[in-house]
Design a protein around this nucleic acid. Structure first.
Lengths: 110, 110
DNA sequence: TAATTGTATCGCAATATTACGATACAATTA
DNA sequence: TAATTGTATCGTAATATTGCGATACAATTA
């Protein structure tokens, strides 16, 4: 016991959870904002802007990449990260669809 | 070490993370969908629909309530849960704002 | 009052996350 | 080739999450 029962839920619900999970830590939200603001970013730039160690930032970048929201490209010695436009939009739609599916009716029980 | 450094980030980023965290587990996504579909829900109904124990569902409901996305109201012996309309909309805006803040330019480095 | 019903909480075990320093590694520079 | 630079990964410690059964608890019913 203890492990998430992902297989008990739909692929879609798992995908939504995966995307939301990427945004579920303030450091990752901050990293994404930096990437958006700068249009692209060398990992070191992020380390300079946030009060976390290089290894911790690297770990967060890995999670964002795993969730598909960002991608990285080798650029000489450095690695350039940026938003993965296609997946970013897909994530936006996925999340917004849930929110939109709730139509207020002013008649909820509570 | 090991604890999240929430205080190192802005209130807003923490709020976004909190909302995203509520959606970061497929069971909670499923619960929200049930609440939306039924407009409101007795806890037991959710237990019947999902392959998780009553105590686990109760825990997930607690987290959703803590994130502010849902609210519960005593209704005799039972407790009726539903979406918290106001906070739901606020969460939608918060998340969508991040996604919208990325304007594609077709000129990213990677 | 006693039994029933629906939900929350406790206690526990398994697993996952967060964070950091140390170190490895790959590409560039001297 | 050797040193440097930027990033990833490893190892480890602290903490958090997930899940369940057992149990507590509050409101209703008998």
């Amino acid at each position: 016991m203890g492990a998430t029962k992902s297989s008990a839920f739909s692929i879609k619900d798992n995908t939504i959870a995966k995307v939301a999970n990427a945004l579920s830590h303030p450091a990752r939200v901050a990293i994404l904002k930096i990437l958006i603001k700068r249009r692209a970013c060398i990992c070191g730039d992020i380390v300079d802007e946030l009060p976390l160690s290089q290894s911790t930032i690297s770990q967060h970048l890995k999670e964002l990449k795993h969730a598909g929201l960002i991608k990285g490209e080798v650029e000489g010695v450095k690695i350039c990260y940026c938003i993965d436009e296609k997946q970013w939009k897909a994530a936006q739609v996925l999340l917004n669809d849930i929110f939109k599916s709730y139509k207020e009716a002013g008649s909820d029980c509570c």
